[in-house]
Design a protein around this nucleic acid. Structure first.
Length: 254
DNA sequence: ATGGTGGATTTTCCA
């Protein structure tokens, strides 16, 4: 199964690029984040015409997640189903074939110490608990998405500049470590121990042109999925040229 | 270095 996570920064603005990507990469499953639209204006028809079923969980203007799959999408859950009042559309999960897929758009957090930062840390604890309930470790499972957290300084183009800043602070990394602590493993690191590989580059500082990025989009795998994992790459072609998202897709073969 | 760009919906929020 070829599975992708991609923060598209508006599915409607990125539709031509998404369709090009589906044609070129031919993934079996695509987890989108920041779709930024209500479900009734999600561009279902062109995506279905490309051969994909869709499970969507969106809201107006902000956030929004979706799972696209060539196969049947079953047992869809929107949100984390934990009784916490939450009006932000950031999680959708579903079974595709033999694999449980949890797609998350983690809170950005704005800045270390901000209200949204504390909300982010609490939200990541909820995600850990949800992932633990949703992905039994003895079955194939993928928890993927835009985590808005780097694992360590190898994921940072300028560790001194980003030291203890948002996306790189120790509490955020510990919260991300809560997920790997369950027994989930970082797919990309299976094949790339070295640093210098990124998935997001800031529009504002022309980060991509400067090769100044962070690796914040991840696929975390249960042991059976990790054992089956044959490759994991960042599709830089999707970040090239005119009108890209600020994130590149991450592609894994399980 | 505290700006900058990009998207959605507006004259501002969020990233």
């Amino acid at each position: 199964m070829r599975i992708v996570t991609w923060n598209v920064n508006s599915v409607r603005a990125r539709l031509p690029r998404l369709l090009e990507f589906l044609e070129r990469v031919k993934p079996d499953v695509v987890c989108l984040q920041e779709t930024k639209c209500l479900d009734e204006v999600f561009p279902l028809e062109p995506i279905e015409d490309a051969g994909y079923s869709c499970a969507v969980h969106g809201q107006k203007t902000y956030n929004g997640v979706a799972i696209l799959a060539k196969g049947r999408i079953e047992d869809v859950v929107r949100g984390m189903d934990d009784g916490v009042e939450d009006h932000e559309a950031r999680v959708i999960s579903a079974q595709v074939g033999d694999t449980m897929i949890v797609n998350a758009y983690v809170v950005n957090g704005q800045a270390v110490g901000a209200d949204r930062y504390h909300y982010k840390l609490a939200w990541l604890l909820r995600l850990r608990d949800f992932a633990a309930r949703r992905c039994p470790l003895d079955e194939k499972g993928v928890v993927c998405g835009d985590f808005n957290v780097t694992f360590d300084d190898r994921d940072v183009y300028d560790p001194a500049l980003w030291h203890e800043k948002i996306l790189c602070s120790t509490p955020e990394r510990r919260a991300l470590g809560g997920l790997t602590g369950l027994g989930l493993k970082d797919a990309f690191r299976k094949f790339h121990e070295e640093g210098g590989h990124y998935t997001w580059w800031d529009f504002r500082t022309k980060g991509y042109q400067r090769k100044a990025g962070l690796r914040i989009d991840h696929l975390l795998l249960t042991p059976p999925a990790f054992d089956a994992l044959a490759s994991c790459t960042i599709d830089l072609a999707a970040r090239e040229g005119a009108g890209p998202s600020d994130h590149a897709p991450v592609v894994a073969e399980i």
